[in-house]
Computed example of a mutant assay.
Amino acid sequence: MSSPFVNPLARGTPSVVNSVRVIKQWTREVLKLDDDAIVCVNELACHLPGCPPKETVVLVMQGSGSTMQASLHKPMKDIVIEDIASAFRGGGVN
């Protein structure tokens, strides 16, 4: 008897949800964002040659209409707060 298939990439898995929450909180802390700022976190797969297999994109939209975006070339589960700080203070912001 085989066990049921569990999709490790499913959006509703607790590890994905938890990773998004933590990355959002770290982004708010690092950038000292107001409560009205919107932080979006997405993990993207890249199939182009030379591109990392997974990339995490953090988008910050503030009430003043300003937008910041940082691309981190690793999966969400591997992101640490130093990655967020480096991306937004360094050259990873668009």
Rank of each mutant, 00 (worst) to 15 (best):
M1K: 11
S2L: 09
S2A: 09
S3H: 09
S3Q: 11
P4F: 10
F5W: 13
L9G: 08
A10S: 13
A10T: 03
A10N: 06
R11A: 15
T13M: 14
T13I: 15
P14L: 05
P14I: 02
S15V: 14
S15I: 15
V16G: 10
N18A: 13
S19N: 15
S19C: 13
S19Y: 07
R21D: 09
R21W: 06
V22C: 02
V22L: 07
I23K: 02
K24P: 00
K24T: 04
K24E: 14
Q25F: 08
W26F: 07
W26K: 03
W26D: 02
T27L: 01
T27M: 01
R28V: 05
E29Y: 02
V30M: 08
V30C: 10
V30P: 07
L31P: 05
L31I: 07
L33C: 04
D35I: 05
D36L: 15
D36M: 13
I38C: 05
I38G: 05
I38F: 07
V39E: 04
C40G: 07
C40F: 11
E43D: 15
L44M: 13
H47L: 10
L48P: 00
C51F: 08
C51Y: 06
P52I: 02
P53Q: 12
K54C: 06
K54W: 08
E55N: 08
E55V: 13
V57A: 03
V57F: 03
V57W: 04
V57E: 08
V57M: 09
V58G: 02
V58S: 00
V58N: 00
L59C: 06
L59V: 11
L59Y: 03
V60P: 04
M61Y: 01
Q62S: 12
G63T: 08
G63K: 14
S64W: 09
G65H: 03
S66M: 09
T67Y: 00
Q69S: 10
A70R: 02
A70D: 01
L72T: 01
L72H: 01
P75V: 05
M76D: 00
K77D: 12
D78C: 10
I79P: 05
I79Y: 06
V80F: 05
V80D: 08
I81Y: 01
I81N: 02
I81R: 11
E82I: 11
D83L: 06
D83Y: 03
D83C: 09
D83H: 10
I84Y: 00
I84V: 13
A85W: 07
A85P: 03
A85L: 11
S86I: 07
S86E: 15
A87Y: 03
F88L: 02
R89T: 06
G90M: 12
G92I: 03
G92C: 10
G92V: 04
N94P: 13
N94F: 12
N94L: 14
